[in-house]
Design a binder for these strands. Sequence first.
DNA 1: ATTGGAAATATAAACGATTACATTTTGTCG
DNA 2: CGACAAAATGTAATCGTTTATATTTCCAAT
Lengths: 349, 349
Amino acid sequence: MNGGQARPTIKTICAMTGLSTATVSKALRQSPEVRPETRAIVEEAARKVGYSTNLHGVQLRTGKTYQVAILMTTPTSDLVEWEGVEYAQLLSGISHAMEGTRYRVALYPVRDYDEAQDTVRRIIRNRLADGVIFSGTRPDDGRVRLLQEADFPFVTYGTTEAHAPHAFVDSDNDGIIRTAMRRLLDRGHRRIALINPGEHLSYGRTRLATYRDMLQSAGIEYDPALVAHGILTPSFGREQVMIMHALKDPPTAYVCANEASALGALSGFAACGLVHGRDAVINATDDLNVSAYFTPPLTTFYLPITRPAELLGRHILGAIDGVAPERLQTLLMPDLIERSDDRLRASAG
Amino acid sequence: MNGGQARPTIKTICAMTGLSTATVSKALRQSPEVRPETRAIVEEAARKVGYSTNLHGVQLRTGKTYQVAILMTTPTSDLVEWEGVEYAQLLSGISHAMEGTRYRVALYPVRDYDEAQDTVRRIIRNRLADGVIFSGTRPDDGRVRLLQEADFPFVTYGTTEAHAPHAFVDSDNDGIIRTAMRRLLDRGHRRIALINPGEHLSYGRTRLATYRDMLQSAGIEYDPALVAHGILTPSFGREQVMIMHALKDPPTAYVCANEASALGALSGFAACGLVHGRDAVINATDDLNVSAYFTPPLTTFYLPITRPAELLGRHILGAIDGVAPERLQTLLMPDLIERSDDRLRASAG
DNA sequence: ATTGGAAATATAAACGATTACATTTTGTCG
DNA sequence: CGACAAAATGTAATCGTTTATATTTCCAAT
């Protein structure tokens, strides 16, 4: 009956073995209900015809999608500018974590926070995925609320202040700023600028809070003029240096929240005639180990993005499997890589 | 019967309207077979219960997957180093091009060329997607062969020398090198280095061919020592500058195939004590507009990656729709952005 | 040999859509 | 008004799985 051309199905194996669909199905899924000898027969037949299960059938019957949705925040059309470059590594890390499973990564591009919420709603409503991953968390995050209400598996890259615990991965921003500030303060810096992401973002909040904390401990008054919030592109870093440099009491150190803004800050140095290490210094947080190639190389907190990425992948699989959220929370402390001393040299003129 | 909780299906609408599944199905798909009045009734009912079609049902019945597979070449684990950062923008561009359709982007991470071929085979065999997109093409590309044999829709980012035409998007590498070389030759450069991708890649081949062509026209002998093939990371660019600088007749210009290697080359300049514009210059090709922020800013051929990305998305939809491959081929010429003059200044010592 | 019950297998009904084919309705024309 | 074709709708099978339930097989204990 079968043309031989068509893709083999469970029925093909039934015809070959004389077994019923139920038995074959169970055998293929290693159910203990089927005798080992029978399973062997089924597996042999499956191997012979090159059977592989048709996901569509499974999906329809079980309602599972075997898709993990990743919300990918993409800048409004043309303003690309090295924004979100780390996404590439993030995506590949997550995908790698799912190798050997049936799960696939499906991309959902969103332009902003509101669109992200809509997308989350759509994913929940239409069961477009079995789990969701997203970044750019806010302390009170609407997406988290939606997903928790729907009891939908998810992992965030970034923390929130949600009442109920949820799975997340993040770098230890408190630890980063604490270490960075202590180091700079030790080296005599008193005017330290913070180049931060948008104000609503959790990690910006955390960084700012710790920054203020460290200033207070050091007995230095907080100056809002030294803190910039914005989209962390090179152009933003550059602008902020140019603005802050024009202050009557300009910063001697810049702590940048990513490598893109650090690169921009360096470009701002050049534009203002500032010399790194003489007039001021820049520290960064780097996911891509790229600040090693800046001129001059910068001191950074380096966490290869593949690490959080793989964890995101593993956590979402866990969340889908019903592992308790408390057990799927990871804070990662980047390594401090001191590429420059960051003590200001005596001005040589 | 229906708890009211369950997601509405076509049957829900049948119950509401008294119509049959066939009619409702056709009405929802705007079939001309159903009377406008009937369609209105169906649409009203659908709206009322918030019906949205269950893809799994469609997929099983029609065999369509509504997935576009993107092969994402990811470096071997830890060697991340800013490799493939442009993928993020590429992915978002492609995804955006599919907004408003049923199609989703699904990611298939592959470590190398062989794994990519295996993955292509799997996608074809198991009909995991309706179309495939990949980059890093070779003149004689095994993936292209597989897909053409299977008559499977695909678009490449990069050209090949396949016998039968296929859909592709690429930047005009011949045009880029032609323009870059003419400009540098006009400015008196005679020793021009080419920082190129791996030898097997099509775009590397094209660049090299045009490079040799331009040298020959200018009556300059080709020197293999001035051409480097490798993975275009910052570290590669840096190394190559350091190696070539040590030649007895070192280059006065470096033409880098991407922004990462250009950044590395600049870093190499610093390491060797070279001053850009005095001892040598660097030109780049840039997808992310990031070379504007290098110190000094570099002259580049800039093509915002969103453009090829959107085209890739549109082309794959076309290919899936059966549009002839000849009509889905696009070469894009980047804009030359002259950020530095690139004439060597008289050495000031 | 019979019985009981566990273990293994089979039957058949889903899941939600599409679609060949059958049937009914509608409208036109003699 | 009746006949007929075209238009609209209905019936039922199907895609490939899983799974509740039924049936058979097997084995041990009586």
